[in-house]
Nucleic acid binder design. Structure first.
Lengths: 244, 244
DNA sequence: CGAAACCTTGACAATGTTCAATCACTGTGG
DNA sequence: CCACAGTGATTGAACATTGTCAAGGTTTCG
């Protein structure tokens, strides 16, 4: 039993949100955390659960969604490993924030009861600062996202997605990248229809020699791609966004 | 001189971000704050200034912008009285976050050096919590905004804007509202061209009897409007957003 | 009154969506 | 191992929405 707790502790310690927090905080987090594995396409958090749990992705990819009145599901976010969800409900468990979470690949996650997070943030100043940091980062990413939404065409969005993926996969600008999840989901995340996504890939081939086969993408001319994608943006290539 | 400081203090105390912070914090905020008035269409913060100042709008309307590579300006946000800008740079003075701020109407604002905010947040737990609260609220508003962006048509956006304005102006659903700033700016904020904005107003007239004359808007059938606007959203009327 | 800024309108181009048909890939059971 | 169903991806044609450009109308304010 002790072994399990030590292992949990060592994992909790690797989460940047918990850097430099007090030993007491670490201990409580460790004891209350649940470490779970799920198969691809499982329901991780239902509407209700998402209001009561903070979640950290240790491995794999998770999508957050809502269901619209006419039944379609809306992709709110796609989380990769080392990302988390639930800061927003620490101070304010607003039902507007209730999402559903599904695994997109096989995953490992850690969940922590939100009431505990609430207590700890109220008492551990360092934890509060860390959470603040994390939320501010998300806010910045979202602002960039909104900026992109209002400026870029669909084709530019997709190019942008690949450019960031390139950045993310390798510090040097790789020409060969791997799509992390299905095109259907990418299209939804970007906010267009799968058909439009397909056609955009064709355009990107003409523009920058971007070739897709299966889940592999080869970009012949990354500079050309970035000049097409980023020409209307306020920032210069490479975009310093991670996957958001 | 003492009178001025007392007045400043009393104003600082009304800002919800500073609720329940320590007396020492209040005192430092009061001494370091600058209370300014600007005429309509003035530059409030340049790119550089916006990285060094936290700003709170006491009265009037302010717009935050960036300039894109091809010279257009991009509206990042429109702030109303009691709103503030600068939490994002308290922990991370990232140049991506540098915006320019212009007054849209005559305004009164308070600025506080960001380095002071940084020190105070690091030491005053209550202040850190308040800032966290504020940032989380903004994050939620942005998530809703993104949801709307990806779901609604331009006409729906505009209808949504008016519905929220109705909510904001009066607790009861008023039928008569006043546009707070020029249509040009609304269009940019919503993310469409002025021409499209114009045409959308016509559609809204046909749908819900929405009439615009000058800066006055009369909505004959608010329920009809909300059913048109909100049919694809995950939330029901009335939308609990304030102006964001 | 008249200039400048703002708003509206029209015709057309560009972009994205819808719907239907087809193709390709995957996994299952015979 | 193959046939088959089911899912996901692509393509085409018609359609809807939004953007662009140009012209003309309105409001505001000196």
């Amino acid at each position: 039993m002790k072994m399990v707790i030590l292992m949990k502790l060592s994992i909790i310690k690797t989460i940047s949100l918990f850097n430099n927090v007090s030993d007491s905080t670490l201990q409580q987090l460790t004891l209350a955390s649940k470490h779970m594995m799920y198969k691809k396409n499982s329901l991780i958090l239902s509407y209700d659960n998402s209001l009561n749990n903070f979640i950290h992705i240790t491995e794999g990819i998770v999508k957050l969604c809502k269901v619209s009145l006419d039944g379609d599901d809306i992709i709110m976010d796609v989380l990769h490993s080392k990302q988390c969800y639930g800061e927003s409900i620490i101070l304010n468990s607003d039902s507007e924030q209730a999402y559903m979470a599904y695994s997109v690949t096989d995953i490992k996650v850690i969940t922590i009861p939100i009431y505990l997070m609430r207590v700890l943030v109220a008492n551990d100043h360092q934890l509060a600062i860390n959470v603040l940091h994390s939320v501010i980062d998300k806010l910045s990413l979202q602002k960039n996202y909104i900026e992109h939404l209002s400026i870029q065409s669909c084709t530019q969005h997709i190019g942008c997605f690949f450019l960031r993926l390139m950045n993310y996969e390798d510090e040097k600008t790789t020409k060969l990248i791997k799509i992390p999840y299905g095109k259907h989901l990418i299209a939804k995340k970007i906010g267009c229809k799968p058909e439009t996504f397909s056609r955009s890939l064709l355009k990107l081939y003409k523009i920058a020699g971007l070739r897709v086969s299966n889940l592999n993408v080869y970009i012949e001319n990354p500079l050309m791609l970035s000049s097409y994608v980023c020409n209307k943006c306020s920032k210069t290539f490479p975009c310093h966004l991670n996957i958001d």
